[in-house]
Simulated assay, not measured.
Amino acid sequence: MKTRRAFLQQMGMASASIPFLNTGLLNFNREPGDDGPVLRVALMGLGGYASRVAESIQSCKRVKITGLISGTPEKLQTWRKKYNVPESSCYNYQNFDNIKSNKDIDVVYVITPNALHHNHTIRAARAGKHVICEKPLAISAKEGKEMVEACKKAGVKLLVGYRMHFEPTTLEVIRMRSNGEFGSIKFFQGLCGFRIGDPAQWRLNKALAGGGSMMDIGIYALNGSRYMVGEEPVWVTAQETKTDPVKFKAGVDETIQFQLGFKSGATASCLSTYNMNYLDKFFLNGEKGFAEMQPSIGYGPIKGRTHKGAVDAPIVVHQTVQMDEMAAIILDGKKPVVAVDGEEGLKDLRIIEAIYQAAASGKKIML
């Protein structure tokens, strides 16, 4: 009997053959809530993070789980009963294209292994559904670009699960930087890592993960450097360290240090690792002040301080705020402070590819 991992890999690598639908924007036909219309979500991939998202949605004002997609029948039954989802709105990876006729689903939240994002996103778009895709958007910039184009062609929105873009402490530091309270930005440091466990998990399988720590935890430091500095990098250098080639096989990075240069002259120094704990820190330095966040990307609470003192911001459940904000983006056309669209995810992928290239070549890569 095939394992779930093998089944996922087979389904994800297969290319969809359903023609694009010229759907335009979806017609949301639902009962409005006190805070506006409700976004009806189908969760795809019922693993650990999906459980966190599902629980968080229960506190949302504008989001409801109305569909489930999984390759494990037992999970579908358990989740269906827990979240009161009708059997007619439960799908597997073979038949989920049928959601195109399900008027009770507006968006598919793709929470499957990285290598499956491309296939699952394109199929959901072809079914006329908006897509929220977990980060990284894909395992290559080429795939990411195809996903962005597919969603545009289908007339649906593509968002990426960058939960930190809605986190209050993060947004307060961004506000201060935007208002010039730190002066000219000179330097950013992002440290992101943990000791990864089970060596058989998909995150250590290059075919499913597309890499190693950089694709999973390092993307937080990379993305953070961009929204904290407030610029796009123009060059990158990088170095890779591997102490356990058995656990971290070829193509699966254990630790990468990378440096970014910005047009203004600001620089960033970041660390991504699967082999060290207690790494969850951002530091931003400017001519007039600084900001430090530690923890900076964990599930919370995020703690920040600046040259003016502690950052006083609400403590929230990241995924609850993320989903309500994404409902506003999709339903109301709200523009977030920090972008979370497919183009934002594509920018990170292009830089990640440059980081891998720099680490392999030892050269500075211009972006």
Rank of each mutant, 00 (worst) to 15 (best):
R52Q: 13
L204E: 08
E325K: 14
Y91G: 05
E74W: 13
L76R: 04
E146A: 12
L8Y: 14
N102E: 08
F283S: 15
I122P: 00
N98S: 12
K82N: 11
S225D: 04
A313W: 02
K157F: 08
K61V: 14
L43S: 07
M11W: 13
W235I: 11
V173N: 02
Q357T: 10
E31P: 06
I365N: 02
I351H: 10
Y220Q: 14
G36L: 07
S15Q: 11
F248I: 09
S51F: 07
K242V: 08
F248S: 02
D106W: 01
D280S: 11
N84K: 15
S140K: 00
G212C: 03
T3L: 04
N119M: 12
P86Q: 08
G71P: 12
A310W: 10
E325W: 05
V110M: 02
Y162R: 07
R62K: 09
G218W: 04
V107I: 01
P336R: 04
L76Y: 04
T170N: 10
F282E: 01
R203I: 15
L8H: 10
G212V: 05
R80M: 15
H318Q: 14
G161K: 08
V337D: 08
I365S: 01
S59Y: 05
L349Q: 09
G67M: 01
S51E: 14
F187P: 02
W202A: 07
E240I: 09
E172D: 08
Q259S: 15
I365R: 05
Y162W: 14
F28I: 10
G304R: 03
K100C: 12
D34W: 10
F283V: 08
P336M: 04
T169D: 10
L158H: 04
S51A: 13
G224M: 05
L68F: 00
M228R: 01
E353L: 08
S51M: 13
T241S: 13
I99L: 07
I99K: 00
Q257N: 11
N114C: 09
P86C: 06
S15F: 15
L159P: 07
K288V: 13
S269I: 11
Q239N: 09
E74N: 15
E240T: 06
A310R: 09
E181M: 08
G180F: 02
T112W: 06
M164N: 15
V173H: 03
L116A: 13
L260D: 00
N119A: 11
N95V: 05
L171P: 00
V338P: 03
L158I: 10
P245V: 04
T273Y: 02
M11E: 10
I185N: 05
K335Q: 04
N179K: 11
N95G: 03
P301E: 06
N275C: 03
E172G: 11
N95Y: 01
P233W: 00
C90M: 12
Y278E: 15
K247I: 06
R4E: 14
L208R: 11
I196W: 09
I99A: 02
D35M: 14
L43R: 06
N277W: 08
V229Y: 01
A359F: 01
S213R: 07
R226Q: 06
M176P: 02
N205Y: 11
D348M: 13
A358V: 00
F166G: 06
K153F: 01
P113V: 04
V316G: 01
L284G: 14
A268C: 08
L158D: 02
G230R: 09
Q77H: 12
V316T: 03
G300L: 05
